[in-house]
């Protein structure tokens, strides 16, 4: 039935189809860069990958030199000078009792900030940034890592443990406030 073929879709149909297609195409990117997807900074601690919400990461700074501060707990690496600001650096691996790693050229200070709380976390390496849909982070039922569940925000589909930056920043155990007993 050649007539039928020649007739094809009517102009109205064509318009409708094109519109539908356009709508589909237009929606796609919206879905991806979508509202609410989380940007996660991937770091390495004691050979394992962890994530940190980049919302709370002020900057990442190569650990060039640091000054140890005496009379502080072992999890305090020391202080660094970042553009004139003196910033404490916490060896979070040591705080979590993870196996010790030597400092290397890849060692990074991840400066976390939320409200007034601000300090650097020592990471063995920073491997990159990726986007994660918020639904993808699930509370882990059993500990997948050596880090206590209270410090974890959750675990992604490919079992990347995302640290709870807000919880860590607010943790009083990481605040040094000691007086010499009279």
């Amino acid at each position: 039935m050649p007539e039928h073929f020649e007739a094809g879709p009517t102009p109205e149909d064509k318009k409708r189809i094109l519109k539908e297609r356009a709508a589909k195409l237009a929606r796609a990117p919206e879905k991806e860069g979508a509202a609410g997807s989380l940007e996660i900074l991937e770091i390495t601690l004691a050979g394992e990958r962890y994530g940190l919400e980049s919302l709370y990461v002020r900057e990442v700074y190569p650990l060039k030199s640091f000054t140890p501060v005496p009379c502080t707990p072992a999890f305090v690496l020391g202080v660094v000078n970042i553009r004139g600001q003196i910033l404490p650096v916490i060896d979070i691996g040591k705080f979590f009792d993870l196996p010790h790693r030597e400092l290397t050229e890849l060692s990074r200070v991840v400066v976390l900030r939320s409200g007034a709380a601000e300090f650097g976390l020592l990471a063995d390496e920073v491997t990159g940034v990726r986007l994660v849909a918020p639904g993808e982070i699930q509370a882990s039922l059993h500990a997948v890592t050596g880090i206590r569940a209270e410090y974890l925000k959750g675990v992604t589909g490919d079992s990347l443990a995302v640290l709870d930056a807000v919880r860590i920043l607010a943790d009083k155990a990481l605040v040094i406030d000691e007086e010499v007993a009279g």
Binding site: V69, C71, T72, V79, Q85, I86, L87, P88, I90, A116, A117, E118, F119, L174, V175, I176, D177, E178, E179, V180
Partner: peptide
């Protein structure tokens, strides 16, 4: 020394 080190001995 910053807020985190409110007081260091």
């Amino acid at each position: 020394l910053g807020r985190q080190f409110a007081r260091v001995r």
